[in-house]
Amino acid sequence: MSKASLEATVDPEKVHGWITQIGSDSSAAVPLLQAIQSEYGYLPRKAMNLVLENTEINASQLFGVATFYAQFRLDPVGRHLIKVCHGTACHVQGADRLNTSLRHALGIVDEKEDTASNGSYTIENVACIGCCSLAPVMLIDGEAFPNLKGADAQKHLVKHAKTKGEILPGHAGEGDDQPADEKEK
């Protein structure tokens, strides 16, 4: 499996369905994009074109909105999404190290790249998710892991990859180790 296979196949019926449900005037731009992204994980060009053809929204507004808000992305995501919180509390407690160790395990070297070469995981930095007292925090496919150190993040990733049958293209420190916060229990 490679990254090329991550491109989504857009079902025009679905896009038409959202337009009927949400509306086709200009105030529908944000919710329509949200609907597309929650289905495909990103905004496939084909889905955006369908919106342009079937609503009052013009291209400058739609792409303007899609590139303005942090939530939207124009590139496909990996099969699993890791969100690393970079709120203030997470920052002062070393959230950067989570990225370092996750990228190491996923073999992502290029600074501009956020997805592993085999399309398994994408790392996304997010603004505060509001669990500041449990900092630093990350989410893998929506499941939260609190009070992490860099090494813990990697261990949770290794464990997750094992259960999902994913291969990590990079180098993980100790694959068979229990995460520190579970070890003590």
Binding site: G87, C128, G130
Partner: peptide, 12 residues
């Protein structure tokens, strides 16, 4: 739209 990183009273 509690955007201030480090505040979570509105969420709560």
């Amino acid at each position: 739209d509690e955007g201030d990183p480090g505040a979570f009273m509105d969420r709560s």
